[in-house]
């Protein structure tokens, strides 16, 4: 196969990435890192993760569930009260 010129170059000529979008991607990455850090050594429920990272609960839920969708997080059991699930880092 012949070496193709990536078409993204073409797109870059006509399109700018808004700063706001760049910031959002960065922010998502930051939150993701925080969550992974919180789960580094032990599993945690979302309120636990929120408490240890200082992130808002709904932000943790959204991000963690997204990570779960992309196989970065796994579910590990339910707490004693049957209220919150534990989550842990996925083994890759």
């Amino acid at each position: 196969m012949d070496e193709k010129i990536p078409t993204i170059k073409e797109m870059k000529k006509s399109r700018q990435v808004p700063d706001e979008l760049k910031a959002r991607v960065k922010e998502y990455g930051r939150i993701k890192k925080e969550i992974l850090k919180a789960l580094e050594t032990k599993r945690g429920t979302i309120p636990e993760i929120a408490a240890s990272t200082g992130l808002r609960q709904e932000v943790v839920t959204y991000t963690l569930m997204t990570m779960r969708k992309f196989h970065e997080i796994e579910v590990e059991g339910l707490d004693d009260m049957d209220e919150y699930y534990y989550y842990r880092k996925a083994e890759v």
Partner: peptide, 14 residues
């Protein structure tokens, strides 16, 4: 579904 069960969107409580 988006979550691993039916959960509350705030704190993922059942």
């Amino acid at each position: 579904r988006p979550f691993n069960n039916v959960l509350r969107p705030k704190d993922a409580k059942v």
